[in-house]
């Protein structure tokens, strides 16, 4: 028995050492990775963005606000931090990290939407946070969601269990091979697509539509976010983007949500730019699904948005 226990302990130690080594190699590789999953977070932590205008939001920001157009109309250096599938909490986390590691922006365009203040049980695209799971603040964010376990936080390499795509990417990056590089322009990812069938599928599965609950804690944190921007002298614009007009009737409390943002804007004396009824919403030609503009729609929308911002507050941009 002594021999068995002894060998088992030595074996376990040797294996843990191997896991530790692999963890370091893969993490290091992923922190250099330029795939769309890790690109923004890596640039944030490396302090490589330092933009005048930062666009915050979910895919509704990433795919709908062209940094190229913002730059050309407002004559600034902008960057789109939009995160696919992310609600307020991860967006807010990312922005805090941005402020910590980059120079503060003059303006933040915050894309708010139907689900922005809704709390999800799972952290969507959680894989992007894995290489940074050793950071306390990242762990605190991840612990708010289902999915990560004790082992992910405390046993080396276990956070990569089941993530063979990440492991391969991490290993390849270590030897200088970067697959699937991010193709966005400063965070803007245009979608050159035509209307797809997802809305038709959605209507079939949700014929009576649905409501979204705004999380009370998120509301409180959202107000803190607004005041924090004001304290840091960052001009904040809340932007409600266009959604295809037919989809509105399926979102029962849409009006209530838009009113909430209006009230917040009034309360804190910030601009709320509501494009939910813009004429862009009337044509499928501008969308690839009911919630996202395609490249054509996004570029028209960004032009309108940039001009509106320009009209509201030109001097502050160039101060």
């Amino acid at each position: 028995m002594k021999k068995f226990i002894g060998h088992f302990i030595v074996f376990s130690f040797a294996f843990f050492a191997l896991l530790f080594l692999l963890d370091r190699v893969v993490t290091r590789g992923l922190r250099k990775s330029q795939t769309s999953l890790h690109y923004n977070l890596n640039k944030i932590y490396n302090g490589e963005i330092n933009a005048d205008i930062v666009i915050n939001g979910s895919s509704k920001a990433r795919m709908q606000i062209s940094t190229r157009i913002i730059d050309s109309i407002l004559n600034v250096n902008s960057y789109n931090l939009g995160m696919r599938g992310a609600e307020f909490n991860p967006q807010n986390f990312q922005f805090k990290q941005y402020l910590k590691h980059n120079t503060k922006p003059k303006i933040v365009i915050q894309v708010v939407s139907f689900g922005y203040l809704h709390k999800y049980e799972e952290l969507i695209s959680y894989e992007k946070f894995i290489p940074y799971l050793n950071k306390k603040e990242v762990r605190e964010l991840c612990k708010q969601y289902k999915g990560f376990t004790f082992l992910d936080y405390h046993v080396p390499f276990m956070k990569y269990a089941g993530q063979y795509d990440l492991i391969i990417n991490g290993l390849l990056n270590t030897i200088g091979v970067d697959r699937n590089k991010d193709t966005s322009y400063k965070g803007y990812s245009s979608q050159n697509k035509k209307w797809d069938a997802t809305f038709e599928d959605f209507k079939k599965s949700n014929p009576d539509g649905f409501s979204v609950k705004m999380d009370s804690l998120y509301k409180t944190e959202f107000e803190k976010y607004i005041t924090n921007c004001a304290t840091k002298n960052i001009k904040l614009y809340l932007v409600y983007p266009p959604t295809y007009h037919e989809s509105k009737k399926y979102m029962h409390n849409r009006a209530e949500i838009i009113t909430y943002y209006k009230n917040m804007a009034n309360k804190y004396q910030i601009s709320f730019l509501d494009y939910s009824d813009n004429e862009l919403t009337l044509s499928k030609d501008n969308f690839y699904n009911s919630q996202h503009l395609n490249k054509k729609g996004a570029e028209i929308f960004t032009e309108i948005l940039a001009n509106n911002i320009n009209q509201i507050n030109t001097p502050q941009i160039h101060e």
Partner: peptide
């Protein structure tokens, strides 16, 4: 063991 960990899903 490594292959198991790489493919492990809860």
């Amino acid at each position: 063991l490594l292959v198991i960990i790489i493919f492990f899903k809860n």
